[in-house]
Design a protein around this nucleic acid. Structure first.
Length: 797
DNA sequence: AGCCCTCGAGTTCC
DNA sequence: CTCGAGGGCT
């Protein structure tokens, strides 16, 4: 590389640099060896860091000196990029937190479970397993033929990171299971550190002048997410198993309860915490909660609560899941610890929807294991209610041990004006908090809708804060999942004027990105690749990414699932949207408004033009046909005085909206309706906009119906029917009957109402049967139910 | 008409 | 995590 002859001075400095780089690498390598292999650091962290940074700087200045074996490549930059993603065959769900930290929490959970299972007071109490909720890092261990093959973090629940090497260094984790192991066994559990071990480790680390670990949870998480396994090996980590993911081939009979499952895991040599119990009914759960609370200080490790799980696995299956968490388990936490600190300022942030949120800037205070400096105050009313002012001494806790929250103001410590300045009554130094009437980011007017708690910046996408938030949302992990597009980058892209809308992202190229701060060729290439990869995300993610008001992750899934394509979503008028589950007038209107906005339409067109193509578009769902009845559509149109019942009557008169829009002798044909209703309808139809909307609705409806899959494939026999179970059936247990009905597409609810299609009654049926007779709901016995399942099956087969 | 449940939106700290 | 609001059921 010295063939060319550059000016002498440059040649000199380059060769000096080359020598220094070589020296630095040798020195760092020696320190690494001392630290990792001999476990005896030869220099302090500060000295080591200084050497490391010098090497990084030189390599940055002289890229030709960069080699792949440099220590800066091993640990520098973003180490997480080097973990391989692992798809969880069975998702690693989180667990719902019971917010009531009093004993009521146990009763609340029990009540929800009983209600879901359709049990009433007369039914036997439910059996649970209670365990501890460890404060650590959730991981999944995959054993094949009893041998540990892979360990992964939870990640987003469906995809985690491969941290096998690190988990192998945890002494509690068996590399080989004892006894007869299933062919495949994914063990779910928690990596944690005991308080003593943490203290001991920190004492040694401090003595060596190294960084200490803040709390056991971060210690566990930080250690496992290190690229270099020797780091994890040097930390005293432990493990408890508490559940399973994918399982194949239990030797002998598979466990049928969670308690038996835990025992089985223990038998296989996995550590299972001894503080667990099988308990019957809510009172026993509450007692466990109290008993563990007393035990908590003497436990060797940190817990933030206890966990209750329905013991029987078949009941767990019957209860099923909510969006991201099982319905059969709950974490019952303990009240958080509080600390006192001063409010230094109250700032106002602007969110994606323009919502203004006051945030208290606090004098740093250590509470619940971390140092807290900010706490959200949610909205103006909230600040007023608590009357938080600048300078106040406040009591702070971490709600649910995570989000900092101001509990109360200590009024006696409020700073007051000196008595001389305010003779007579003492006066607070600072006035009550008020939100500004101009957006702090863009100066637009701040508006607060009647009856709404949040105030919003009216600037829309003119407001840079909203634009940035919209872009971050678009790129977010749950949306288009563009890795590497974080806050700092969005900030720069917007400031440069390169990116105004999400569509602009797809026009970015590597040379352009390299002009940004801290952006080398490699990062730029990665980012462009991540952006390109996002073009084929699922439709649900794409819809969510658009950031339509009231359309979050779950509603986006519903829309994608039912309508199947962006084209239908854009085209669907409000009444059609309102027919979908979870979508009513407000959400439907928000969607229509979004697509009607020319700016949004052009952004979407630009996205499509840039090649963004949801990978899973499909025809609308077959069941849509059942929901797109004119009765429902008429009811959803918002015609005055037209109740659901009247809408059905109207549908009987006009089986198609277009016909209604173009009807002659309208008043006469509406005669069967009560006069005020028909008058309101005639009035409504007098508006040509409304007639046009009806025609539009009719044609879109027809187009959607025509697009439905030709053979309505697996039409479930009981789809759309609601059942209520009562009494004891001769053969089927209650939950078995429930499972059968649900498997066939039916729904089981707890009480009889007009919405109920059938009541299934056994012996000793109670008031539900009376109610059914009263409402004229058909009553089935077990045989009739089974016949119905069979009969409908044949009909559709 | 009113309650209950779920979802959406904003936020913290590492 | 918490709060508010929308949707669905009583």
């Amino acid at each position: 590389m010295n063939q060319k002859t550059p000016p002498p001075s440059q040649a000199d400095s380059a060769s000096v640099a080359q020598q220094r780089v070589a020296d630095l690498r040798a020195e760092i390598a020696a320190h690494d060896r001392a630290y990792y292999e001999l476990d005896a650091p030869s220099v302090s962290d500060e000295v080591y860091d200084a050497l490391f940074r010098e090497l990084q700087a030189l390599e940055a200045a002289y890229p030709e000196l960069q080699t792949p074996d440099s220590p800066t490549c091993r640990v520098g930059g973003r180490p997480l990029a080097a973990f391989t993603p692992v798809a969880h065959r069975v998702p690693m769900l989180s667990i719902q937190t019971e917010t009531d930290t009093s004993a009521n929490g146990a009763w609340n959970f029990d009540a929800r479970v009983r209600k879901e299972l359709g049990l009433d007071a007369a039914d036997a109490p439910v059996e649970y397993v209670a365990e501890l909720k460890f404060d650590g890092l959730a991981v999944s261990l995959r054993y094949e033929q009893g041998v540990l093959m892979q360990g992964a973090t939870r990640g987003d629940g469906s995809t985690g990171e491969d941290v096998t090497q690190n988990l192998r260094t945890v002494r509690d984790i068996p590399l080989v299971l004892t006894g007869l192991a299933p062919a495949v066994l994914e063990v779910r559990g928690e990596v944690y550190m005991t308080r003593d071990d943490l203290a001991r480790y920190n004492a040694q680390a401090a003595a060596r002048g190294e960084k200490t670990l803040v709390n056991p949870r971060n210690a566990a998480a930080g250690s496992i997410r290190q690229l270099d396994p020797s780091v994890a090996a040097s930390r005293p980590l432990r493990f408890f198993a508490y559940g399973v993911g994918e399982v194949e081939g239990w030797p002998g009979a598979a466990p049928t309860t969670h308690a038996a499952l835990l025992d089985a895991l223990s038998e296989l040599g996995l550590p299972v915490c001894e503080h667990r119990a099988v308990l019957v009914g809510a009172r026993a759960l509450a007692d466990f909660h109290a008993r563990i609370a007393a035990l908590r200080p003497s436990l060797p490790f940190d817990i933030d609560g206890v966990v209750y799980k329905v013991n029987r696995l078949d009941l767990q299956a019957a209860l099923g899941f909510r969006a991201r968490e099982p319905r059969w388990a709950v974490a019952h936490k303990y009240a958080a610890q509080e600390a006192h600190t001063r409010v230094e300022a109250i700032d106002v942030q602007v969110g994606r929807t323009g919502a203004l949120t006051p945030v208290a800037r606090l004098q740093p205070v250590f509470v619940g294991g971390v140092t807290v400096t900010n706490a959200t105050l949610h909205n103006e009313d909230e600040v007023r209610r608590k009357d938080v002012r600048v300078g106040d001494l406040v009591s702070v806790r971490r709600a649910g041990d995570v989000i900092p929250e101001i509990v109360a103001v200590l009024l006696e410590a409020r700073p007051m004006r000196p008595a001389a300045a305010a003779p007579g009554a003492a006066e607070p130094l600072y006035p009550p908090f008020t939100l500004p009437d101009r957006c702090p980011e863009c100066g637009s007017h701040v508006v607060r809708e009647e009856g709404e708690a949040v105030a919003r910046c009216s600037g829309g996408l003119v407001c840079p804060a909203q634009r940035k938030a919209a872009l971050l949302h678009f790129a977010g992990r749950r949306a288009m999942d563009i890795e590497g597009l974080g806050e700092r980058l969005v900030e720069q892209l917007v400031a440069q004027g390169w990116v105004r809308t999400a569509a602009d992202l797809y026009a970015l190229d590597v040379p352009q990105l390299m002009r940004l701060e801290r952006m080398g060729e490699k990062s730029a290439t990665n980012l462009v690749a991540a952006i390109t990869a996002s073009k084929t995300r699922s439709l649900a993610r794409f819809i969510f990414a658009l950031g339509i008001r009231h359309v979050g992750e779950s509603t986006a899934k519903t829309l994608a699932d039912w309508l199947g394509s962006l084209a239908w979503l854009r085209r669907a008028p409000r009444p059609i949207l309102a027919v979908l589950p979870d979508v009513g007038q407000v959400v439907g209107q928000a969607i229509v408004d979004f697509f009607a906005e020319p700016h949004n339409a052009s952004v979407i067109d630009a996205l499509l033009a840039a090649g963004v193509r949801p990978s899973d578009e499909h025809p609308p769902r077959a069941e849509l046909a059942e929901r797109l009845t004119w009765a429902r559509l008429y009811a959803a149109l918002g015609i005055p005085r037209l109740s659901e019942t009247r809408a059905e009557e109207l549908a009987a008169l006009f089986a198609d909206g277009a016909e209604l829009a173009d009807a002659t002798a309208l008043a006469a044909r509406l005669a069967p309706l009560p006069q005020p209703v028909s008058a309101a309808l005639v009035d409504w139809l007098a508006d040509s906009k409304h007639r046009e909307a009806l025609r539009q609705l009719a044609s879109t409806r027809a187009a959607i119906l025509a697009a439905l899959p030709a053979a309505a494939l697996p039409r479930l026999p009981l789809a759309g029917l609601t059942f209520v179970l009562t009494g004891t059936l001769p053969h089927l247990k209650r939950d078995a009957a429930r499972a059968l009905i649900e498997a066939a597409g039916g729904k089981v609810s707890g009480s009889v109402s007009r919405q109920t299609d059938y009541v299934v009654a056994g012996s000793e049926a109670g008031t539900k049967l009376d109610k059914a007779r009263e409402l004229g709901v058909p009553v089935l016995d077990e045989a009739a139910l089974l016949a119905m399942l069979d009969h409908n099956k044949e009909k559709t087969a």
